[in-house]
Computed example of a mutant assay.
Amino acid sequence: MRNFVREKKIYCGENYMEVDLYSLSEYQLEKKKGKRSKKKYVSLPKQEKMNDKNARRRFIQLAETNFGQDDIFLSLTYKDIYLPKSYDDAQREIRNYLRRLKDRMKSQGVEEELRYIVVTSMREPRGDDKGVRYHHHLLLSCGLDRDMIEDCWRRPRRKGQKKGDLIGYADSKRIQEDINAGILGLANYLAKHTSYKRKWSCSKNLERPFERTNDHKYSRKRLIQYALNPYDIERWEKIYPGWTVADKDFGIEAKYNDFTGWAVYLKLRRKIKNKLLE
């Protein structure tokens, strides 16, 4: 039975793409050799624990598809007095926060929809801690300035108060894209950081990444050649014009399996044109 090399491109928005190159048998092929597949949307991982490598990868793809330059990365913590007693309490608190954001957007005349991914982190008690410590990280697009976003991390106002009590620390920053950091660096941090247990959820209006496959571009001989010398960035830039490796340390991976042979995985980012040279 003959083997083929499949190229699978996973498109995540306009500026980020992942490429998988791997062998599979004629029996495994869904389409006849030489045919290019139709667009197929990537299924999302369950919005729970990110303890599976494929689930973490899907999380990164979703983040790359929907967030980027000038969107917001927000971290929210709790004062001891307001520390949630359970995960459900923490989720209730973050839902209330998102509702306050929507109210602030409406009062400010913001017409765009709120888009977000929220990761809730849980650290087991240690030292003088009396319970699980919770905090939240959000990738956010809402049309509000950072001061307004941070100011919504408050409890409802009580009688005689101009503003409700701050729940904890709120720290936001604008996402700045470059080759080695930006949204990919943040998504990798959220997906891989292991000192906390993490669960995540997202707004329903996010765009999903999609994939296409091609079964005639690479030969097995060429795949082996590339897998044995995978870190030739100039070569990948020639094969995929207009793209470069997104992460110099973790953007290229070559693996060997006794059953399927070699496979290569690439994380690519679209090259940014220098406007001064145009």
Score class of each variant (00 low, 15 high):
R56H: 00
R270C: 02
R222C: 07
V119Q: 03
K267G: 07
H136V: 06
S141A: 10
R208G: 00
H137R: 11
L266V: 07
R155M: 14
M122H: 09
A191W: 01
R208A: 05
D215A: 10
S75I: 05
L228P: 03
G185D: 00
K38F: 04
D70K: 11
R123H: 14
L76G: 04
F250D: 12
P45Y: 06
S107E: 15
R235H: 13
R99I: 03
D247Q: 09
S75T: 15
V118L: 04
S219K: 11
R198G: 03
I60N: 01
V245M: 12
M105D: 06
E26N: 15
D247C: 09
R174M: 06
W200Q: 08
S121C: 14
D89W: 00
D70G: 00
D178Y: 02
F259R: 14
K248F: 04
D52T: 03
K173F: 02
C202K: 15
L138A: 08
N3L: 00
P156M: 06
V42P: 01
P45F: 02
I233V: 15
L98F: 09
G34E: 06
K49C: 08
R174K: 11
V264L: 15
A55N: 10
S23N: 14
K238T: 13
I252D: 00
K217L: 15
R6K: 03
K255C: 08
P241D: 11
K192R: 07
N214C: 14
E253G: 09
L62T: 12
T194Q: 13
I149C: 09
